[in-house]
Design a protein around this nucleic acid. Structure first.
Lengths: 219, 219
DNA sequence: ACCTGAACACCGTTCAAGT
DNA sequence: ACCTGAACACCGTTCAAGT
C-alpha cells in the first residue's frame, strides 16, 4: 500500500517484474501488485483481462531486454550469438524466465530473431521442419539453462537458497563412496556452478557444434 | 469422494499422478486427492508432511519408469541411450515431468544413471566440473524437450489445447509475408510437431554430437 | 496410529455499484 | 473511463480433538 504513480499498464508490469525478481514467480499475486499501487485488486482487471495477461506482459518485458545479433553473421556464429543474447536477457530476470517461451512468437523482437534464425538455417540446408525444430531447441535450451542453473534454481525461494544448497550437498556427500564416487566428487559442481559464464558458454558450444554437425550431414 | 482402498502412500501417489496426467500439474490439489479416497484433506498430512513431499513422491513415481541403459556402452552410445530412456520415462507423464529434475539426485535410479554418465564422461577426458555440467545439461534438456514439445505443452490444460493451437497458428499465419516468410512457412511445424520421435531423436543427436565434439577437443 | 472439524490466511475472479 | 465493495469458490496448512 504505497500510493505510487498512476495505474498505467507499464508501471504495473514493472512492479510485477520487480516482485518476481525479488520474491519468485509463485509469489506474484494480483493482490500484491495492487497493494504496490495502493489500489484494490480489481483495479488491475481494468488494464489486464486476467492474471495470465499480466504474466504475458511480464514475459514481454523480459524480451524487451533482448538484443538480437547482427544480420551478417553466418549460421554458426549467428546461432551462438542468438543463444547468448537470449540467455543474457533471461539471466537479467531468472525468476521470470519461464514466461519467455510463450511470448517469443508474439513479440516483434522474438519474431525477428526467429525469422533470422530460420533463414540462416534454411540457407545452410535445413528444410522448414528441421529448421523449426532447431530454432525451438535453441529457445527451450536457453530457457532451461537459466531456470536450471545450479545454485540459482528459480523454483526455490531466494531466501531459502543457502540452506537448500547445504542440505543438497550434505545429502550427496553422505552417499556410499564405493557406489557413487563420481557423484560424490561432482557434488559441489552439481549444487552450485563455480563459473556461470562457463556454464552457459559450454552448453551453447555443445548445441552449436551439434547443429553444425547436422548441417554438414545435410549437404 | 469414492471411498477407495485404504490410504497408503503408494495409492495416494498413484492417484495424484493420475490427476496430473489427466488434468495437468496445476490441477493437483491436496483436496482433490483426498476426495479420491473419500477422506478429509488433512488425512493426507499424516502420510506426507506437506504438498511438496507429495509432489516429490510423484516425481519419484515418474523416475520409477526409467530404465537406465547397459553399462558396457561407450560415451557416445551411452549418452544417447541415457537421454532416450530419460525422455521415454518423462513422455509417459509429460505433465509430471517438471517434478523430475529435483528428484534425480535423491532417487537410486537417478543416482545410478548419473554415476554412470559421469564415469563415461570422465573416461572420455572430461574433468569433474565439465562432466557435472554435461550431465546436468542432458537432464535439463531431456526435461525441456518433453515439457516444451510443440503441440503437447504441459502449461496448457489438455482440454484447451486444440483451440490454443488454432489460435497460435492463425496468429502466425496472419504475419506480413514480406517480413516473416520463414516464420509463416514454419508455423505449422512450430505449433505442432509432425513426428514426435523425430523431434526427440534430432535433439538428442545434436546434443550428443556436440558433446563428442567437445570430447575430441579435450584429448 | 490414523483421521476429523473447524478455523486461518490466503488465492483469482464475478458482478453490481460508485464517481 | 476507471475504480471500489462485497461476495464466491477455491487454495495449503494449523491445531486440537476424536477413535
Amino acid at each position: 500500500m504505497k500510493a505510487k504513480i498512476s495505474l498505467n499498464p507499464d508501471a504495473v508490469v514493472a512492479s510485477a517484474l520487480r516482485i518476481v525478481d525479488e520474491q519468485g514467480l509463485a509469489a506474484l499475486t494480483v493482490r500484491k501488485v495492487a497493494d504496490e499501487f495502493g489500489v484494490t485488486p480489481m483495479a488491475l482487471y481494468w488494464h489486464f483481462s486476467n492474471k495470465d495477461a499480466l504474466l504475458g506482459a511480464v514475459g514481454d518485458a523480459v524480451i524487451a531486454g533482448l538484443h538480437p545479433p547482427d544480420d551478417d553473421l553466418e549460421l554458426e556464429d549467428y546461432l551462438r550469438e542468438a543463444m547468448t543474447s537470449l540467455v543474457d536477457a533471461m539471466r537479467a530476470h531468472p525468476n521470470a524466465t519461464p514466461l519467455v517461451p510463450s511470448r517469443i512468437m508474439v513479440t516483434e523482437t522474438g519474431l525477428e530473431l526467429t525469422e533470422k534464425t530460420l533463414d540462416k538455417l534454411g540457407l545452410a540446408g535445413f528444410d522448414t521442419d528441421r529448421a523449426a525444430a532447431v530454432a525451438h531447441y535453441a529457445l527451450m535450451i536457453a530457457m532451461t539453462l537459466v531456470t536450471g542453473e545450479p545454485g540459482a534454481e528459480t523454483t526455490v525461494k531466494p531466501t531459502e537458497r543457502a540452506e537448500a544448497h547445504e542440505a543438497k550437498l550434505a545429502l550427496l556427500q553422505s552417499l556410499p563412496e564405493d557406489r557413487y564416487p563420481r557423484v560424490r566428487a561432482a557434488a559441489p559442481a552439481m549444487v552450485d556452478c563455480a563459473d556461470s559464464d562457463d556454464y552457459y558458454g559450454s552448453a551453447i558450444d555443445i548445441f552449436v557444434a551439434g547443429v553444425m554437425a547436422q548441417a554438414r550431414a545435410l549437404v
